[in-house]
C-alpha cells in the first residue's frame, strides 16, 4: 500500500468517536440555523469555512443581530483564543509537513488538535499525511452532519440524546493516556484545576479567557523560576 493509503488506514479508527459526535452535533447545527430562517447553503458553507463548532452557533446570533463586523471579528478572537495554545503546542509537530501545514492549521479544531497532539503515530506511517487525514476526516464528518441537518434534518426522527458525550469521553481518554505516560503531573493537574475554578467563578460563558491567561502566566513564571535556579 502506498503512504497515503496506509496513513489513511492508521488515522481512520481513532477518528470514529469524532465521526459519531460530529454527525450528531452537525445535524443539530444544520437544523438550528435553517430553523432560524437561513437557507441550507449558509450552515453548509459556514461549517466548512469557520469549522469551529461553538463559534458557528455564535455566528447565527451575530447574523440575526445588527451589522457589526468588528464586533464579530473580536468575538471570534475571544471565543477561539484557545487555538493560540494549540498553535504553540504544535509548532514542532507541524514542522516539515510542507504545504499540508497550511491545511493542518486551517482545520485545527479542538478534536483534530487533541488527536494530532497526543496520539503516538505507528512506525512506518507518514506523520504529515496521518495528521492531514485526521484533520480532513474530522472536517468531512462535520460538514456531512451539517449538510444532512440543513437539508433533511426536520424529517429525521432519531433519539441520540447523549451522543455528544463522545467528545468529552475522547478528551478524558486522551487525558488519562497522557497521565500514564508523564513523569510530572503538574501541567495536567493545573490544566484541570485552574479552568475548573475559573468556571465556578465566571460561569460557562466567560471562564475561558481568564483560564488561558492564568495558565499562561503561571507557566511563564515557572519558566523563569526554573532558569534562575539552574
Amino acid at each position: 500500500m502506498n503512504k497515503y493509503g496506509s496513513a489513511l488506514r492508521a488515522a481512520f479508527p481513532i477518528t470514529l468517536p469524532i465521526c459519531a459526535a460530529f454527525l450528531f452535533l452537525g445535524i443539530s447545527y444544520g437544523l438550528y440555523m435553517t430553523g432560524r430562517g437561513f437557507a441550507p447553503l449558509y450552515p453548509i458553507c459556514t461549517s466548512a469555512l469557520v469549522f469551529a463548532g461553538s463559534m458557528e452557533f455564535v455566528l447565527v446570533s451575530l447574523l440575526l443581530g445588527p451589522f457589526d463586523p468588528l464586533n464579530a471579528f473580536f468575538m471570534a478572537l475571544t471565543v477561539n483564543s484557545r487555538h493560540l495554545f494549540y498553535g504553540l503546542s504544535m509548532l514542532e509537530k507541524y514542522k516539515d509537513t510542507g504545504l499540508k501545514k497550511l491545511y493542518l492549521i486551517f482545520g485545527m479544531c479542538d478534536e483534530s488538535f487533541a488527536i494530532n497532539c497526543s496520539v503516538k503515530i505507528p512506525a512506518g506511517i507518514d506523520k504529515g499525511w496521518f495528521m492531514t487525514f485526521v484533520t480532513f476526516l474530522n472536517q468531512c464528518y462535520w460538514v456531512t452532519g451539517v449538510t444532512t441537518g440543513a437539508l433533511v434534518g426536520s424529517r429525521l426522527d432519531f433519539d441520540a440524546k447523549g451522543l455528544d458525550f463522545a467528545l468529552t469521553a475522547l478528551f478524558l481518554a486522551i487525558f488519562a493516556a497522557q497521565w500514564q505516560g508523564e513523569e510530572n503531573h503538574g501541567p495536567s493537574l493545573l490544566g484541570l484545576a485552574l479552568p475548573f475554578f475559573c468556571l465556578l467563578l465566571w460561569g460557562p460563558k466567560a471562564f475561558l479567557p481568564p483560564s488561558l491567561a492564568l495558565l499562561l502566566a503561571l507557566f511563564v513564571c515557572a519558566f523563569y523560576y526554573r532558569r534562575q535556579r539552574s
Partner: peptide, 10 residues
C-alpha cells in the same frame, strides 16, 4: 501546554 490544554478541554 499540551497536557494542560487537554485538562482544559475536559
Amino acid at each position: 501546554l499540551p497536557p494542560a490544554v487537554m485538562g482544559m478541554l475536559v
